[in-house]
Design a protein around this nucleic acid. Structure first.
Length: 177
DNA sequence: TCTAGGATCGGCT
DNA sequence: GCCGATCCTAGAT
């Protein structure tokens, strides 16, 4: 699923306008057997409720008290796995994205991080649970037909999960070269 | 009710 | 490369 998301277009439509990014970095979180995952060992809380539900929904949470992170729930009812959207390149609405991120931010840095991407797309916890597949919804993921070759994808350790022991070195971060 | 810590970012050295 | 910001979340009490 993480592999399939690379190269797709994430679109957020608001009253201000549309910002879209082509996804170039994602991270897989493998549910109850993954010590780095919020639902490790069956943890089921108010925050993680969305992960336990329907596939294709947005799981949004706040990190470090100041940044939002956007995930795609991947499997389905009772199997709480997700893919964290770590970064993308703005392809539509660059001016609007820059307005949200700050006028001094370079184009390539508008959404090259999970918190930055959420800021550029104005995604916050109010979007938790939204259906990416709802073509009339605010948040959608689309394909423009382009898909990366296997040789275009780096498989790397995940970021910021050192507390998870050996799982922190699992090659579940996928990034376009 | 209390407390420790976090799937980050940007400014500074 | 280091470090502070900032506040929600989850687990302990």
């Amino acid at each position: 699923m993480a592999r399939d998301l690379l190269g797709k277009i994430l679109v957020h439509t608001t009253k201000q306008g549309v910002v879209a990014v082509r996804l170039n970095e994602v991270e897989a979180y493998l549910g109850v057997d993954d010590p780095a995952c919020h639902t490790f060992a069956g943890r089921r809380t108010t925050r993680t409720a969305t992960m336990w539900g329907e596939a294709g929904r947005a799981y949004v949470y706040l990190i470090y008290g100041m940044h939002h992170c956007l995930n795609v729930v991947t499997v389905g009812e009772g199997v709480p796995e997700a893919v964290l959207i770590r970064g993308g390149v703005a392809v539509t609405g660059c001016a609007l994205a820059r307005g949200r991120r700050g006028s001094r931010v370079a184009g390539r840095n508008l959404a090259d991080g999970p918190g930055k991407l959420c800021q550029a797309l104005a995604v916050n916890r109010s979007h938790n649970g939204l259906d990416f597949a709802d073509s009339g919804g605010a948040l959608t993921i689309r394909s423009d037909g382009w898909t990366p070759e296997a040789c275009d994808v780096d498989r790397l350790p995940r970021i910021g999960v050192d507390y998870a022991g050996a799982a922190s070195s699992w090659p579940l971060r996928l990034k376009l070269r």
